[in-house]
Amino acid sequence: MLVIVAKLVARRLLAAVPILLVVSALLFCVLRLLPVDPAAMSLPTTATIAEIEAKRREMGLDRPLPEQYLIWLSDALHGNFGRSIQFGREAGSLVAATLPATIQLAGAAMVLAAIFGLGGGLLLFHLRGTWFEAVTDIVSILLLSIPEFLWGLILLFVFGVALHALPFTGAVSPNLPQPHVTGFLLIDALLVGRLDVFASAFRHLILPALALGLAFSPAIMRVLRSSLFDVYHEDYIQQARLRGLSERQILLGHALKNAALPTLTLAGVQFGILFSGTLLVEVIYSYPGMGNLMVDAVRNADLPLIEAIGLTYCVAVLLINTVVDSLYVVLNPKLRVR
């Protein structure tokens, strides 16, 4: 099985190369076609029109678009995404500094989405045929219609403002230091032996992760329930009943495993969307991740930074899809045969 998975990962990574090239070209062209002037944005307010023109030439903005792209691509392949207009630092180093926080947030959110999604799906399935079914159905649709930023605001005002129960700004309390080892704050706090920092970072992670998790769990919930409905119409479920297995054994031993496949596919897609959903949530919770940085970049027409972050999101989604596909192979024996 390991060989099959390894082959799949290799194939996926090879396929990622042209995808990345297309995405990078699209990203580059779209940004260059926008009516913003990075030359003017990179100069102070006292610059004259002549100085802006000189800057445009210096930045290569007067060259043909394909030439500009090839220069940028060549630099990007060497790890050089250019210097951020707003921050004056290497765009790549800014992404590297903020990416761990976003991964940590997205990971925590996905865990919560999986818990709520699986738990809710099983509950919905369990309540089938009862008068609760209609109610839970409406509730799940209602939850499905609430986007992550709205969850963010709701949770912030309920748990942050009204109840004063959880913090909602930053990644750790103002009176605590932020250790830097791997960039992942929870891990770093443990590595330096600061349990107080770990506890604080954990508390700061709860609300943003919950906002994202709650926004993405209803889809998982509903797909799991539908899959379970389908699976329960299969012959092997009836045969399991005839063999005298309890409903619990049937659910956990047979139905859930098969119903998990479409759910896993959906979760993979959702995780990609969830990763980009961190953007607004990070702004609302002042979480120092890549989404927060992206908002700055867009606001300031910081093209090098937008390109670096955009490509990073693309790579992240491709990696997530590769992991999901690998899991799919692990869970589905039919795919292993092929």
């Binding site: 005002f157 942050g160 403002v161 909602f168 930053g170 609302i284």
Partner: peptide, 21 residues
């Protein structure tokens, strides 16, 4: 003095309201 970077105006309102700023 700790300066918390809070870009969203609603979040800044919430921060002062809740005592976090």
């Amino acid at each position: 003095v700790t300066i918390e970077i809070i870009k969203d105006p609603s979040a800044r309102v919430a921060a002062i309201q809740s005592g976090q700023a």
